[in-house]
Design a protein around this nucleic acid. Structure first.
Lengths: 109, 109
DNA sequence: ACAGAAGTACGATCGTCGTCAAACTTCGAT
DNA sequence: ATCGAAGTTTGACGACGATCGTACTTCTGT
């Protein structure tokens, strides 16, 4: 019954704020996290992401993403799982995640 | 034939960079400029925007937007006109400007 | 030619943010 | 019960960026 077992606070869709979401997504590391989540299609533990920062920095990034509403976090054992809140983001800001997770297409000549 | 008359450098669509575009759009003042341009549907002089910053700061913001490819700038007399590069942005990052300029819809109960 | 309007260029300041290391907590497995 | 794996917390540091005032440039109108 440790404190760690308690799920951290998550904002409701009605509280999503565009400014906050953009500030979360402007960082390349955080955008990479979102992209990896979107591509995998499943929930991922913090440690499984391919990001080149220390653990404490990673914790910080996940917190920013969670507080912006982009991910939902819950514990499984000692692992913290991360789920992309796709549907809710799409409801709040239609097309935004689509535009940001779509890989850049090479332009025709 | 003053130097001021020469148009400043504008990136080509093929050089648009998502990171740079996001860094440009994450600032509320700059996003407001883009929104006002999009809403008005016509080119606007720097001085006609409704932004609460000094002239020198405004110059800085327009420069960031131009270098990211979001606006095209040209002189008309002493006024610097700003045009939203809508089509080119849509080509490079489909749906992005749509998602950011669409006013937030109130959520149903 | 001169004054004013519209921006630009240049420093300087100041706050915020991404980063890390170190110490700590929690949980699972042995 | 102990150890290691997985994250968290805290504090510090460094870089970057938004802001401003001042001085400067360019063009327009008179």
């Amino acid at each position: 019954m440790g404190l760690m077992g308690r799920t951290p606070p998550h904002p409701d869709v009605s509280q999503f704020d565009l400014q906050q979401v953009l500030e979360a997504l402007v960082d390349p590391v955080r955008r990479s996290i979102v992209t990896q989540l979107d591509a995998s299609g499943e929930d991922l533990a913090c440690g499984t992401f391919d990001i080149a920062v220390s653990k404490s920095t990673a914790t910080h990034h996940f917190k920013v993403l969670r507080e912006a509403g982009l991910i939902r976090q819950y514990y499984v054992g000692t692992s913290r799982m991360n789920a992309l809140r796709r549907a809710e983001m799409d409801e709040a800001f239609p097309g935004l995640l689509d535009a940001l997770t779509r890989p850049r297409v090479s332009l025709p000549a």
